[in-house]
Design a protein around this nucleic acid. Sequence first.
DNA 1: GAAAGAACCTGACGCCCGTCATACGCTCCC
DNA 2: GGGAGCGTATGACGGGCGTCAGGTTCTTTC
Lengths: 231, 231
Amino acid sequence: MNLAEACRAVPFLRELGETERLRLEPHMRLRQVARSEAIWNTDDASRDFTFLVDGRVKLVKTNEGGRETIVELCRPGDLLCTSAVCAFAPYCCSSLALDGPVWVLTIPRRDIFDLIERGGAAALSWMVETSGREARLTGRIEQLSSGHVERRVAALLCDLAERAGTSASGGAGTWIPIQLTRQDLADLCGTTVETAIRVMTRLSREGVVRSAARGLVILNREKLLEIARSI
Amino acid sequence: MNLAEACRAVPFLRELGETERLRLEPHMRLRQVARSEAIWNTDDASRDFTFLVDGRVKLVKTNEGGRETIVELCRPGDLLCTSAVCAFAPYCCSSLALDGPVWVLTIPRRDIFDLIERGGAAALSWMVETSGREARLTGRIEQLSSGHVERRVAALLCDLAERAGTSASGGAGTWIPIQLTRQDLADLCGTTVETAIRVMTRLSREGVVRSAARGLVILNREKLLEIARSI
DNA sequence: GAAAGAACCTGACGCCCGTCATACGCTCCC
DNA sequence: GGGAGCGTATGACGGGCGTCAGGTTCTTTC
């Protein structure tokens, strides 16, 4: 993976004018992150803006009792959490490579601030990029707002199907190429690993989903939507 | 309420240079919104960026089964939901005045895009403003991630105390000057109105909170924090 | 001041869900 | 090949919670 390929994989960078890109390139750092390795940890000083070039990353908050919440599941092309970087504050979440390998590209805060300060299409692109993230976060809040775990799981899986699903080979269902443990599902849906296991086992038994190595298949997407949308 | 007062009440506008402010002022619209009236509704076309000048606004998503989620409780000075405006898309949530009167100031999308495109401190301010909102939304996701309703309610009330609380007169506890119905609490915490009522009744009985007209008092903030933080 | 509607409250019931314990299978490392 | 650790799974249990029904209190409007 080289810098040119990485820039092409990230919408914000792909859309930069050549002048801006050439100005930023000396400051870009591209690195590979092993599976389960952290890109940053909670309380680390923030310094760079981070783009996800390839692979999957989860952003995790941990409360003082030790309970973990996956706040966001990021996908290739995404700009990762910016609030700490903008605020010159330590990170309030961790970011972890979900499955590997993961490639990330970082650009120092100073250089992005210079870029935005110059205005132009780059500043507008940043605005649009970060407003897209806002929409996804509000969607997550809505997903989490049902009092029934099965509905929360269904809402999450529907969203993953929408955003990352492809047709399964053999034409049966929707393939989600993301390797989530039951613990990950529990952390995404605000429940315990035992309950997440029971929900997935029940959905499998009912022929709604099928777990697989390296991802899962949604066999009955309409049923899942129906579960997610019930009051 | 006039335009100058409104600009002073909104951090992003207050920090604009005079040149930029003068350029924007002809396009600003300041209006009052009655209690429970919508500023916009779901599926309305988006056109303007909206700042909350005074009062409280809730942003509500409604799923197809009719269940409502309060995605965010906005406070004076906040920039309201930008994702639809940036995406030239219809709104995917409603915004409602929580108690009245509420004052909002709108600026057409075109004019803010021009402002950001020109760069400078205004573009940087926008960046910081929207990253602050991201932090609040991820905090909301963490609040919602416990499987116990009482913990979710406690987490919400602690957050409200932090962000809007003042010392109660007579020195007893923290006064939260926000008039939330039990249904509002339920919609904020992903539960039903009956359960929200039971939780608040129990917390009142235990001397942790006291409901009042136009808001509530947190009598035992440490106890509430302990509930919120338990695993 | 009365009536209507909204909001708060309580009871009963059944099931969902968290908690704790335990077992099994798979992967990785020595 | 065996052991350790991780991940999936199941059982038992008690309480939390959603649902439905009905009652009380408060606020608003006429």
